[in-house]
Design a protein around this nucleic acid. Structure first.
Length: 483
RNA sequence: CGGGGCGUGGCGCAGUUCGGUAGCGCGCCAGCUUUGGGAGCUGGAUGUCGGAGGUUCAAAUCCUCUCGCCCCGACCA
């Protein structure tokens, strides 16, 4: 493998590796404002692929899109006590508009439960108006102390679903349905296996009754919350008087939910699959699934090579694949190979004079390094079929590798001593029996930097002893260092 | 907010100790030769040295003030 000096190896400094990949693959760059980033076209294309995978699933489950305003009267947030307490440290507030001090400060939305609650109260009168299933794609702002591109920025893009239901049962079903949509997206599109779980009181959304999460494992063994779904009970309905008349002409409060996935998902894709050569994108999300690199030595070879390259391009495009021919003539093939590998393109097709001669092409897969991942002499007639098969295989292989890594780095421990040792020496996820309190969680974080990621829902429910308190319990928990 | 570091062509940096014509690498532009794993040669363009004030014959360099950014920690999708 040719060394590259542009990307720091993961095991040397994972954090620098992450930043190097983002810079070299041109996903994003810093803006002049601390903690904000510019999402560059390639990074935005990746986000668009994520959006499209999610949006399709939202529509399929009966949701529609709408848009609510960026500015929210500050008093709205204050109507729900836990909500304002949770969010006030990270609010950006506008106090001056048009040169004059505003009568009421406007909060730049950190999330939209309140403004949406206000309008749902107007839209919902009768049980016939329910359920109300709306999603919005928007930007939000949270004043963060410590930021990282995609993982935590002051402004980020996301979708937030907000639904209102007649009964707790329906709302809880919705909460879990959308959690499953997220699981489906994460595993099948992003190729990242996730753990579904419940958040502890300490970690749950400010104003939720129950928060659910999907947690993925990143390349360094740290956890990343990749999506959340909340059952909000009647808390926001109460605060904003979101109520309806039921079949018996009795006024009832709505039960509401909210759920979101953000541009953090881009960070998840980078970290779950990337290697020392750069990005490795799952075909389902890759903005460019196949790149064709034409190769020629003599000017006379150029025409025939490009002709075949264009032909292959057309045949793959006609089958719905996202293909690009790299026609740059100021770069060598070797440069292009490395360049596209860094950008994570799943398949590279090389077409040179020898291939023209043999009416064949070379297929190279990104998920297998060097010659091992190259298939020489694929007949042109079979390239489209071969490419299609290969895309599926790469998608599956990335998911498999990520799952393998998570399995290898998930440890069951039964004592707090082992907990600390394993975390320090190996890292990864610690799967433990748990019956601790919020204070116990705080203590663990203080002593080990690990946090309670979730109480997994898929759980054998075997009885055991709490790793910290020793109490008997059949509840388990995942602890890990987290972003 | 505490601790550390840094502001010099587009990017990364040297130069600051000990004041004396602002440099290097990458990138960029032009030309020629190259092109199956990050091409070579030749020529060229690009700077209010973060800002303000001061000392001095002379300041990137010394002094004072100021602004900003990055890293580590406390909070977080």
């Amino acid at each position: 493998m040719a060394d590259n000096n542009k990307i720091t190896p993961q095991n040397e400094d994972y954090s620098r590796w992450y930043l190097d990949v983002i810079r070299e693959a041109e996903l994003a760059e810093d803006s002049p404002v601390r903690g904000s980033m510019v999402i560059r076209p390639y990074g935005y294309a990746l986000w668009e692929a994520i959006q499209s995978g999610l949006d399709r699933r939202f529509k399929a489950t009966g949701h529609v899109n709408a848009y609510f305003p960026l500015f929210i009267p500050k008093s709205f947030l204050q109507k729900e006590t836990e909500h304002i307490e949770g969010f006030s440290p990270e609010l950006a507030v506008v106090t001056i508009g048009g040169g004059n001090t505003l009568e009421e400060p406007l909060v730049v939305r950190p999330t939209s439960e309140t403004i949406i609650g206000h309008h749902y109260a107007k839209w919902i009168q009768s049980y016939r108006d329910l359920p109300l299933l709306i999603n919005q794609w928007a930007n939000v702002v949270r004043w963060e102390m410590r930021t990282r591109p995609f993982l935590r920025t002051m402004e980020f893009l996301w979708q937030e679903g907000h639904t209102a239901h007649a009964t707790e049962k329906e709302a809880r079903e919705e909460t879990l349905r959308m959690l499953d949509v997220y699981v489906d997206f994460a595993e099948n599109d992003a190729a990242i296996p996730v753990i579904k779980g419940v958040k502890s009181d300490r970690e749950k959304f400010a104003g939720a009754v129950d928060s659910y999460t999907i947690e993925g494992m990143m390349g360094n063994g740290w956890a990343l919350q990749m999506g959340t779904s909340h059952y909000l009970g009647t808390k926001f309905a109460q605060a904003f008087n979101v109520s309806f008349l039921d079949q018996n002409n009795v006024t009832q409060l709505c039960h509401t939910t909210s759920w979101g996935i953000s541009t953090r998902m881009v960070g998840a894709v980078i970290m779950a699959h990337g290697d020392d050569r750069g990005l490795r994108l799952p075909p389902a999300l890759a903005p460019i699934q196949v790149v064709i690199v034409p190769i020629w030595r003599k000017e006379a070879e150029r025409g025939p090579v490009l002709e075949i390259a264009d032909h292959v391009h057309a045949s793959l495009r006609d089958e719905g694949m996202r293909v690009k021919v790299d026609r740059r003539d100021d770069q060598t093939p070797g440069f292009k190979f490395n360049d596209w590998e860094m950008r994570g393109v799943p398949i590279r097709i090389e077409i040179g004079p020898k291939d023209v001669q043999q009416q064949s092409a070379v297929l190279a897969r990104r998920d297998r390094p060097g010659k091992e991942g190259k298939n020489f002499g694929v007949p042109l007639a079979g390239v489209a079929q071969e490419t299609r098969t290969l895309l599926h295989s790469i998608q599956e292989n990335l998911r498999h590798q990520a799952l393998q890594k998570r399995t290898d780095n998930t440890h069951r421990v039964t004592s707090y001593t082992a907990f600390q040792d394993v975390l320090r020496e190996q890292g990864g996820f610690l799967h433990v029996h748990w019956a601790g309190t919020t204070q116990d969680e705080e203590r663990i974080q203080k002593e080990t930097k690990a946090t309670l990621r979730c109480l997994p829902m898929e759980n054998a429910k075997e009885e055991g002893q709490c790793v910290l308190t020793g109490k008997r319990t059949n509840q388990t928990a995942i602890f890990a260092r987290a972003y």
